[in-house]
Design a protein around this nucleic acid. Structure first.
Lengths: 354, 354
DNA sequence: TGCCGCAATAATAGCGCTACGATCAATTTT
DNA sequence: AAAATTGATCGTAGCGCTATTATTGCGGCA
């Protein structure tokens, strides 16, 4: 029995140079078993309609029998583009982004696209790293959070041909496509609502506004809208820590000290608002009698709180489905940059706290 | 001006057969500019210490100048393993898993490993799909949630040589490595704590116990431990919807109707407990005077609630760091299956609600 | 009758990189 | 002084697949 190494001839003994690792079952194996060429198997996998019924059947059978798992890296290398979509968010710890990421994963998964996840932790530098890493995968698309990025990030993206979707924010010029809403309008709505509820001394409670530019925009919109109304005062009280109920409670205390006449509060988000509600309970401040409270996010607890929390719902899932849809269309039409902006809006939910 | 197609010779005009797509700058370009061979560039990128200082410098310079982005698919194909780690969780909408995923991404990212994310939505069938998709990327490791999987999933994983880490649960035999804790012990701790607080009529409020087997284990441990004590009663009240404050409020109502003598409650998690707290406020039930409440999760609001919530903290971030550490070590030692079990434990936080 | 068009399939040349040896100089050991 | 060891670098054959072109078989039409 020969090992088959040097069957060639007696002359020059080939030194049996290289060997390589491999994956157990390849497309070639499937082709052999199905009695067709590898090309046909590949075609069957990518465009099943272009293959005859009989061939399809035997290929399907072979795949089943061998339990063949395609190698996406080989495919991606050959096609110069992978079945991965890179989604870069500040953090999935944040329920907003978790919602969008989960929705997108579900939508993209239907088309057998995989999600590559990255967290910037609100750092543009980190975002740039993540974009660079993402690009090494030749992803089918890249999803970024927000519209402000470092110049290098923007350049990297522009020079690549990868579809780009920016989510959770509208306002300035997107790189290519954008799905989100205007945060400063959220602030305006909150202010308008409180004014309409006859509140005159308003305060916005902000957490980590330095990093969370979108929250900062909400704050700005809030102040601007409030101050348009005669007789209304509006201030921002903030804390550098990430938003949480604890920070909310703290900020309420500070507010009562600095602006005891306050009668309307809007919060960075519902976590902060929840802290406000608890602290008011402890301090004996009646909501909404003495103080109206509006949150942002409509988190899972907001409807069940006591009192139930008036809030602004941004629909992170809609952002996810729309972003996924754009990506899928863009891939199907596989074309050039296609500037698109989708405004997913938001809804003010008027509940007991205002 | 020639197009450069047939410069070769006049004899046989090469038919200019194939063309192919490409990436602008390749490792060859870097090598050429740095005056070294492609192998050296590759080596520099993978094991910088094995390359001389002078070579390193010129390569670094070339990479910089050309703003070279390596093609990870080509690399992965050649190496038969990619720089991606597949993490499969029920859903990142769940704060527990979001925490772990975020932590792992941060830890793995330091070693330039990317996270491929998948959501099972508590379906073993879906998990199987995700594992199959994950394997087509020849990932550096696969992370699964929990210990119960379909037989096919188990088989797929066992037959591959991919490192596997199961997180968030201990108890039965893991596929390879496991990082988590015993949920049934969590239930026991909650029961023991309530008994110690002189509670005698206990109820466990559960959400979606059918799907969330880990929560079901907590419930079982709770009941078992409670009933060991003479004179103590323990029941489970549950709802098929995912856990939320709303469900918690609803379940408390049901509990008061069915077991008006209840004086101690443990919850599926802090969301449910939060709903209980709010509903008790509405019904005028005093916590902890009339009723003690214990949650699970120590979510962001739990310390700030009114009353502050006694709860059991599972440290999802520790699970993340430990899982990441195992993966990194396993990759470094690049060896065989290495059965390892890490118990990350949990902490009971005694606060005002009990 | 012969040629064209079309549908289905096959042959082939890489995609960009890594790993395996081989090479070559500079030491160190005998 | 010759041999053995070491450290740094190079040459090259694939990894498994896709895209492009080439080929085949078949009915329709001039």
């Amino acid at each position: 029995m020969q090992t088959g190494k040097t069957v060639e001839s007696g002359r020059s003994v080939k030194p049996t140079r290289k060997r390589r690792k491999m994956q157990s079952v390849t497309m070639m194996d499937v082709a052999a078993r199905a009695q067709v060429s590898p090309s046909t198997v590949s075609l069957y996998l990518r465009k099943p309609d272009a293959v005859s019924v009989s061939a399809s059947e035997s290929i399907a059978k072979a795949i089943q029998a061998l339990s063949y798992v395609p190698n996406l890296m080989a495919g991606g290398l050959a096609a110069a583009s992978s079945r991965a979509v890179s989604i870069i968010v500040p953090s999935v710890r944040n329920a907003f982004f978790a919602e969008t990421v989960a929705t997108m994963q579900a939508e993209l998964g239907k088309q057998r696209l995989q999600v590559l996840l990255g967290h910037t932790e609100y750092s543009e530098r980190e975002e740039e790293n993540l974009v660079r890493m993402a690009l090494s995968w030749a992803p089918a698309a890249i999803v970024l959070t927000g519209l402000s990025h470092s110049n290098a990030t923007r350049k990297l993206l522009q020079e690549s041909r990868v579809p780009v979707v920016e989510i959770w924010e509208l306002g300035s010029e997107p790189i290519e496509m954008a799905v989100g809403f205007h945060h400063e309008q959220v602030g305006r709505s909150a202010a308008a609502h409180l004014v309409q509820r006859h509140r005159r001394n308003l305060v916005f409670l902000g957490a980590r506004l330095q990093e969370d530019r979108r929250a900062a925009h909400r704050a700005e919109g809030f102040i601007e809208e409030a101050r348009k109304v005669a007789g209304v005062t509006a201030e921002i009280i903030q804390h550098p820590a990430p938003s949480s109920a604890e920070v909310g409670a703290m900020l309420l205390g500070e507010t009562m000290r600095k602006f005891p006449q306050v009668d309307g509060i809007a919060c960075s988000n519902d976590h902060v608002a929840l802290g406000v509600i608890f602290e008011c309970q402890r301090l004996g401040i009646e909501i909404p009698g003495r103080l109206s409270v509006v949150g942002f996010g409509d988190l899972s607890f907001s409807a069940a709180s006591n009192p139930s929390l008036s809030t602004i719902r941004p629909s992170g899932d809609l952002i996810g489905t729309e972003a996924a849809r754009l990506i899928l269309e863009r891939i199907a039409h596989g074309g050039e940059r296609t500037p698109t902006i989708i405004d997913t809006r938001f809804t003010l939910l008027h509940r007991q706290s205002s």
